[in-house]
Amino acid sequence: MLESQRIFEVPNGGYGWVIVFGALLINMLNRALYSVFSLLFGPFFNSIDISQSEIALVMNLTSFFESIASIFTGAVLKFFSIRQISVTACILTSVGLTLSALTVSVYQTILTFSVLAGIGFGLLNNLTIVAVTSYFTTNKSKAISFSSAGTEIGQIILPQIIKHLSLHFDANMSIMIMGCILLAGVIGALLFEPVQSHMKLKEVNENHALISKPISIKNDENQKRTSFWKKCINTLDLELLQDSRFVVLIVVLACNYAASLDCLLIFPYFLQHAQFMDMLEQSLL
């Protein structure tokens, strides 16, 4: 007679849907901010006399620091929990956006928004996906779809918020208020509890447990001989760069992302100057 053994498995739902809501809230406030960048910063940049090329530099550097932060997300997760990093990232985006309202030059805006907020954006982009997928097995695609819907919801709501802020406050105060609104993402980040505390017990027979249990063999001698460069590769999970197809895919996606980002930035200015549409009319699009 086969003996049964208890193992832990992810809930595949349950508290995982609370994680989905937290990720949706973060995406709604942070990832959707790109689509309203020109609406939020347009009047402010005009007041401090920043050219469109300098505005593009701010946005592209934000994307650069976002990408750099994404590379180090896996390494940071080895030392801190998802909740700790997510809360820190939400605070970075809020502080970066709020301090941007106090800048008087493009270089100060780069330091506050591109660096601080960009790093926060990069960390949150990966953390929301990791947090959601860790709670699901067969419902991963559905959970990710629901959490990603927060970006589209934010693209609908945030322009209306900015429109009302512009009617009652100046450009600097509107940016500072939006920075405070981004702090609401901390609520979603606090919901990111470790999946270990919500795992369910499942009974399986002994043969199945032996087959499914991963076997890891450690070689202490080889670990001692590991070079510093190899440790960096393992920490940052850069083994995928050895695959040429993966590198080509990264380059193509990077070019596509850069082109779409520039289009997203320039299009509102085209509507404002070529089509004679003010910010309130743009927010309705």
Score class of each variant (00 low, 15 high):
residue 90 C to L: 05
residue 75 A to M: 14
residue 39 L to Y: 08
residue 69 A to Q: 07
residue 43 P to R: 07
residue 33 L to N: 15
residue 67 S to K: 09
residue 81 S to L: 03
residue 87 V to G: 06
residue 32 A to K: 01
residue 89 A to F: 02
residue 34 Y to H: 15
residue 89 A to E: 08
residue 80 F to D: 07
residue 79 F to P: 01
residue 53 S to Q: 15
residue 84 Q to Y: 01
residue 79 F to A: 05
residue 88 T to D: 03
residue 20 V to F: 01
residue 74 G to W: 07
residue 23 A to L: 05
residue 90 C to A: 11
residue 14 G to H: 03
residue 38 S to L: 12
residue 36 V to M: 07
residue 37 F to L: 08
residue 39 L to I: 14
residue 26 I to Q: 03
residue 44 F to N: 09
residue 45 F to L: 14
residue 13 G to L: 00
residue 34 Y to M: 13
residue 40 L to A: 06
residue 23 A to G: 02
residue 46 N to F: 11
residue 72 F to W: 09
residue 24 L to P: 06
residue 84 Q to F: 02
residue 82 I to N: 02
residue 54 E to G: 14
residue 52 Q to M: 15
residue 38 S to N: 14
residue 45 F to P: 10
residue 23 A to P: 02
residue 54 E to F: 13
residue 98 T to C: 14
residue 75 A to H: 10
residue 13 G to K: 00
residue 23 A to Q: 05
residue 60 N to E: 04
residue 46 N to S: 14
residue 89 A to G: 09
residue 31 R to H: 11
residue 14 G to L: 06
residue 21 F to D: 04
residue 85 I to G: 02
residue 15 Y to Q: 05
residue 32 A to T: 01
residue 90 C to E: 04
residue 50 I to M: 04
residue 25 L to Q: 03
residue 81 S to I: 02
residue 24 L to T: 00
residue 14 G to F: 08
residue 43 P to W: 05
residue 96 G to N: 13
residue 29 L to D: 00
residue 15 Y to W: 08
residue 38 S to F: 10
residue 53 S to P: 10
residue 30 N to S: 13
residue 17 W to P: 01
residue 43 P to T: 04
residue 85 I to F: 02
residue 90 C to S: 08
residue 72 F to V: 15
residue 67 S to C: 13
residue 78 K to A: 14
residue 72 F to K: 11
residue 52 Q to H: 15
residue 101 A to M: 06
residue 65 F to L: 05
residue 79 F to H: 12
residue 97 L to N: 09
residue 58 V to G: 06
residue 101 A to V: 11
residue 16 G to Q: 00
residue 22 G to W: 04
residue 92 L to W: 10
residue 68 I to P: 04
residue 46 N to K: 12
residue 48 I to Q: 02
residue 70 S to Y: 08
residue 45 F to I: 13
residue 21 F to R: 00
residue 24 L to G: 02
residue 90 C to I: 00
residue 63 S to Y: 00
residue 84 Q to V: 07
residue 73 T to H: 07
residue 77 L to H: 09
residue 58 V to M: 10
residue 99 L to N: 12
residue 91 I to T: 09
residue 66 E to C: 13
residue 67 S to T: 12
residue 24 L to F: 06
residue 95 V to T: 14
residue 27 N to F: 08
residue 78 K to Y: 12
residue 76 V to K: 01
residue 37 F to W: 13
residue 63 S to P: 04
residue 72 F to P: 07
residue 28 M to E: 00
residue 58 V to T: 10
residue 75 A to W: 11
residue 14 G to Q: 08
residue 33 L to Y: 15
residue 36 V to I: 15
residue 59 M to L: 14
residue 79 F to G: 05
residue 46 N to D: 10
residue 27 N to H: 10
residue 51 S to W: 03
residue 35 S to L: 12
residue 64 F to E: 05
residue 15 Y to K: 05
residue 70 S to N: 14
residue 61 L to M: 09
residue 62 T to N: 10
residue 56 A to L: 13
residue 17 W to G: 00
residue 31 R to F: 08
residue 96 G to K: 12
residue 29 L to H: 04
residue 44 F to Q: 06
residue 96 G to F: 11
residue 73 T to C: 08
residue 21 F to G: 06
residue 22 G to R: 02
residue 42 G to S: 12
residue 68 I to R: 01
residue 67 S to Y: 09
residue 75 A to S: 14
residue 36 V to W: 03
residue 98 T to E: 12
residue 101 A to S: 14
residue 31 R to C: 04
residue 96 G to L: 11
residue 89 A to K: 00
residue 48 I to N: 07
residue 96 G to E: 11
residue 27 N to C: 10
